[in-house]
Design a protein around this nucleic acid. Sequence first.
DNA 1: ATAAATTTTTAGACAAAACTAAATATTTGT
DNA 2: ACAAATATTTAGTTTTGTCTAAAAATTTAT
Lengths: 218, 218
Amino acid sequence: MTLSEEDYIKAIYHLGKGENHTVSTNEVAEKMETKPSSVTDMVKKLSEKGLVNYRPYKGVSLTGFGQKMALTLVRKHRLWEVFLVEKLDFSWDEVHEVAEQLEHIKSEKLIDRLDKHLGFPQVDPHGDPIPSKKGEFKKAIKKLLSEVPIGVNGICVGVKDSSAPFLKFLDKNNIALGDTIAVKDKEEFDGSLHIQIKNRDIHISQQIAANLYLKITE
Amino acid sequence: MTLSEEDYIKAIYHLGKGENHTVSTNEVAEKMETKPSSVTDMVKKLSEKGLVNYRPYKGVSLTGFGQKMALTLVRKHRLWEVFLVEKLDFSWDEVHEVAEQLEHIKSEKLIDRLDKHLGFPQVDPHGDPIPSKKGEFKKAIKKLLSEVPIGVNGICVGVKDSSAPFLKFLDKNNIALGDTIAVKDKEEFDGSLHIQIKNRDIHISQQIAANLYLKITE
DNA sequence: ATAAATTTTTAGACAAAACTAAATATTTGT
DNA sequence: ACAAATATTTAGTTTTGTCTAAAAATTTAT
């Protein structure tokens, strides 16, 4: 697999939402910032190699083999992201570009050892699950914190209300994107939540919880 | 800098022994396992980019800029080697190939952070010095353990006598290539040495010491 | 249902990095 | 010093991945 081939496989995988939908030439071109004609060329090549199913004018999807490949790439990408954040103190929003390069390094041993070194993490810094060596993983879903059941934890990935007062509140309470949040308890009375974040237990209103998105793995 | 360009720069650097000797097209071709004509092509390109000095039929050497580039690559390569050995438990002889890939990753921040994460190591697992960010470093030299002065430490990189009895001795005493050895004291009487290796203090004869190569940075 | 708009593919070209074969320099041996 | 041997370069191709422009298929809108 060349670097370029790997990038196409990954793009097709992500466009297919991990569900292996058929995607169009144009979609791939846009994602990869290249021209549709280039995609046609590459997709033919990948088809010959047995990595994708391609029917002219009808779009492209991954074969079983292609999916396996894509999952390996996703695994590598996410493990490197964990490494960058956990070991090298990168922030959650600056890891993507570097991981994009690191994921192409070819060494099975390297990835196995990295996985071990990191303590076999289940999710990356964005809350997305890391496929196992065999390619198995649970899907991640995005939910409002107010919708998350007690006992579940996830990673803060976004806000619904991005007004200054709300962001200020988050800042004041030291809640940031990328933080892991665990739902400890819910008050029946007002729907307020007791959550754990960065080893602190705090109590937030239902209103706050209804404006924070968590990514959780089911 | 493309991947390929980087490989050429590194090859020219290593062939020049870090002293920036002029090297021939054929030498580069052999080192890179490519054809001399390919080298000519690339060397012209590198010359236009100001990375090498090239005179047809006369050979090629690095410019100041090219040297800077080469040292950055060497720095990256050796830092990754340390990472692989120290953090991922690779053995000293299996790191080269992977480091060869990792050295091409482009991110200054990554290397700075890696350096810090590793505790700013001075030498790689083979005892070769790691250039500083500015490209400064001390040269490494290979010496017989028996020739190393008291107080100096180095890395075991080879044996002079590779007979079975000698290797067996090393094995029994848990001395392996890649180990760091510090010379603690010398007996005037028989030239035997008190050395520290893997946090153990041991006493070895002059004969043993005269058959072990250490790499030390002066 | 058909014309217009859009998407996708084909054909032909280009740049990077390599190769082969032939031509040209340089070095070596007598 | 000159012929032979060796080293290096030049010229012309190849492969990979990209591009543009034109052609063909599909979808959409009336």
